[in-house]
Design a binder for these strands. Structure first.
Lengths: 252, 252
DNA sequence: CGATTTTTTGATTAACATCAAGACAAGTGG
DNA sequence: CCACTTGTCTTGATGTTAATCAAAAAATCG
């Protein structure tokens, strides 16, 4: 490969928060121009991660938050026995690493699902900026709060929905996030494996595979390995809940 | 009832953060004396809630965070169909309401499980204090982060453990929290119903009831309705995970 | 291409939900 | 204080969903 290409790439990555395409979705959302430059200065050199590369692992000292700039990652926890539970899949504009604020060390692991680029926000500097810029402080709190709310959705999904509803909900939420990124919400490109999807939903891989097949038979999806096209968004929506009346499971 | 008793009660409740028994477990943890007085000034009149009383509900405008001072609460979300998912049970010293930071309105409901008293932290004032007192800002971030970490535990429990392991894990975590409150960690007083426990774990009430019976037969617990005595903490611990080797479910 | 991993499909089983009913505690009103 | 209601909890019998076991097909990789 020619060096020019690489240099261009790096320059592209080097562009600031102010000109970043994710501007309105990321930490800068709702921040004034002056303050934005300050934030910009704290964002450290962007990192590239290859598929499978680990951004941080359980036990790592906390020293930065990270923003997904392109690509995608998964975060997960592991117990003593080595069982893994995937917590979330992260798309561009999303900030990760908040779990480490509590104890000053990470209690989860973040791993790239594909080649991804990352903005690093060293925490000491970020703290400096946020204490000077109240708007940024509030914005940061809002972002953590969004993570809390998202986890509530995850809990509701795992606790109260059955397998097919869960997968439908998962696909719909992915579709929504695609749209917020100005992508076609009906043409999903799943960067995670079936195994990862199953784990995220608390199922086994066979179940997920069967569900994809079933939804394809129903005409809801067109599945081609990683690429999933939503043919009938309306049907998919209806699959998120089997006729309301029909279940107990401590619904309330 | 005699007015004197009521007045005394109110006075007791009115005592400040500095002298509160929960001092070291609550927001003041790690805050200096001077700053503590400032925090103290922002804590609004304490509220009493009767069993079943609602502190905030889904859709309520966000204007305060709340600290459980005595008693206990549950928080839960509900979907369109009315299905409920309990997110957590909250004991004294715990701060709730963070879900509302994201959108300026609550997206969950908090309800007292027994007669409980609550400290209210009006957010506008809290924001003022935190911007003046960086230590408090950091402490607040740590507390939200703890909530995130706790939810990771909940997700791991629901996604990867089976019913008996879940209940064992739940009881153990409750026991730990009792101990942090200087209570006997082996003499639990469950303020929540079997129904609530089942919902929290993603099970039905019959399953939970059967598990209590089974654990009693095994000699792990002595169950008497709301009162649960842990007879064999060691056995309980071992129940949190059936022999490590024996499962798939996308463990890693 | 052979080797390994991922995904799909089928057959069987286990875990938990559902259905049904009784036991027990806590009110409630007479 | 007692009959009666109501809600919570327990226990048993049966059913269903998703896990497990097994193996082949498809994709990825060196």
């Amino acid at each position: 490969m020619e060096p020019t290409a690489t240099v261009l790439d790096l320059n592209q990555l080097r562009r600031s928060c102010s000109t970043c395409a994710l501007h309105e979705l990321c930490l800068p959302a709702g921040i004034g121009v002056d303050d934005l430059n300050r934030l910009d200065a704290t964002v450290k050199d962007k990192r590239m991660l290859d598929r499978g590369a680990v951004l941080y692992r359980d036990g790592d000292k906390f020293d930065a938050l990270y923003v997904v700039r392109s690509g995608s990652l998964k975060t997960f926890v592991q117990n003593e026995a080595g069982d893994m539970q995937i917590l979330a899949f992260h798309l561009p504009g999303e900030i990760i690493g908040f779990d480490a604020l509590a104890s000053n060390q990470h209690v989860s692991q973040a791993e790239a699902l594909e080649r991804s680029s990352i903005c690093e926000l060293p925490y000491v500097q970020l703290q400096q900026v946020t204490s000077d810029v109240p708007a940024l402080h509030r914005q940061l709190m809002r972002v953590i709060s969004r993570e809390v709310v998202e986890e509530h959705r995850h809990l509701m999904m795992m606790g109260r929905q059955q397998a097919q509803e869960q997968l439908a909900t998962f696909l719909r939420s992915l579709s929504d996030r695609y749209q917020r990124l100005q992508r076609d919400g009906n043409a999903l490109n799943l960067s995670m494996s079936r195994y990862d999807i199953a784990n995220y939903l608390g199922l086994v891989v066979e179940t997920v595979s069967r569900l994809f097949s079933r939804m394809e038979e129903m005409g809801v999806l067109e599945v081609n390995r990683k690429s999933v096209r939503i043919l009938r968004p309306d049907l998919l929506a209806s699959l998120c809940r089997t006729d309301a009346a029909s279940k107990q499971k401590s619904s309330g």
